[in-house]
């Protein structure tokens, strides 16, 4: 009975939140993508409670923020690369006030003013990573250096691809010499034809934990995110992360403030907090992905900072390409070929 009353009070209380209560920051993020310690330290310092809710894909996050438009309850979200431009173009985001952000100048110049948000009007980088090739060197003889090597017959049935339409097509487009963000239907069709050859080799698609098929012993070579490669190496030291010659896929998760955020001030405060070098370093070490905050890299463990998988050298990034929003028309073309690919037609 007590709990019933509690639930009732909770339900009523929600509709009538007032400013007298302690300040709350509603953070909408991937699960376990922000260490509890960071949230605690932020609360200790500012008195602002962080409510951390989660989503399992950019698509779901986008659809919700769009549907909730007028009653948006989130103050901060963390979309990946091109979702920033998509959301800002559709008016879902509030401009970030640079005067309220401290430490923005310490962000890696390579990761600001990207085409997805030319002047960083709407977004501040949080963590970034790459999608490259994983090779289980214990089972694979000879070098694998390029995406094109995945088409090698010896990998038949031993190949893993991420379960991500854009990434898989990106690979084929690059092998054919096109941009990974192609919107040309002919190029996309060519990529589809190229991928049908690959389907025989693919053992599994996986975007939940791409390191697992390698650890399971099910696959020897294929795509992986760099952070997953680092985690996978703990259990399987032979797992190597390769930057493909045609160029790796780069992605960047950024903070954005949804248009109707209730507490944008707290959001700005939180972004500034996370940009502090010691906090950024703590996050990078805990999560396993690279921080864009340059001074933070000095504070990192030597081993982490010198790990090429996490922090690539400039040579590794030759030909690297960010994904951009390809627009609705091209998206329909991709979606059609993706269905055909998966259904074996």
């Amino acid at each position: 009975m007590k709990r019933l009353v509690l639930a009732g009070v909770l339900a009523l209380g929600l509709s009538g939140c007032s400013s007298e209560e302690p300040q709350v920051l509603n953070l909408y993020n991937w699960s376990e993508y922000m260490p509890q310690e960071v949230l605690d330290r932020f609360t200790d310092e500012t008195g602002i409670q962080v409510v951390y809710t989660t989503y399992d894909s950019n698509e779901a996050m986008y659809a919700r923020l769009k549907l909730l438009d007028d009653s948006a309850a989130y103050d901060l979200a963390v979309p990946s690369t091109y979702y920033v431009s998509k959301m800002s173009n559709e008016g879902l985001l509030m401009a970030v006030d640079p005067s309220k952000i401290e430490g923005f100048d310490s962000v890696d110049p390579e990761l600001v003013n990207l085409p997805v948000d030319p002047e960083n009007k709407y977004s501040v980088p949080y963590l970034w990573g790459t999608t490259g090739i994983a090779v289980d060197t214990a089972d694979v003889e000879g070098d694998v250096t390029a995406w094109a090597d995945l088409w090698d017959e010896r990998f038949q049935g031993r190949l893993m691809m991420t379960n991500d339409m854009r990434e898989v097509f990106h690979v084929a487009l690059r092998v054919l010499g096109y941009s990974g963000n192609s919107t040309n239907p002919e190029e996309i069709e060519a990529a589809y034809n190229k991928l049908t050859e690959l389907m025989l080799s693919v053992r599994t698609f996986n975007s939940d934990a791409p390191r697992m098929p390698y650890l399971e012993g099910e696959t020897d070579v294929g795509m992986i995110w760099n952070g997953e490669a680092v985690m996978g190496r703990e259990a399987l030291p032979a797992l190597e992360y390769v930057y493909p010659e045609e160029g790796t896929i780069v992605w960047l998760d950024s903070f954005v403030i949804p248009k109707n955020a209730k507490n944008p001030d707290a959001a700005h405060q939180f972004i500034s907090f996370v940009l502090r070098p010691e906090i950024a370093a703590l996050i990078s070490e805990d999560i396993g992905y690279a921080t864009p905050v340059v001074p933070a890299r000095e504070l990192l463990d030597e081993e982490v900072a010198n790990d090429r998988a996490s922090y690539p050298t400039p040579e590794d990034m030759v030909n690297a390409e960010f994904q951009t929003d390809i627009g609705d028309e091209a998206l329909q073309v991709y979606a059609k070929y993706w269905e055909m690919l998966k259904s074996g037609q």
Binding site: V202, E339, K342
Partner: peptide, 10 residues
Amino acid sequence: PDILGGSRNL
């Protein structure tokens, strides 16, 4: 089914 089947089939 996707996780166990490798999501090769729709």
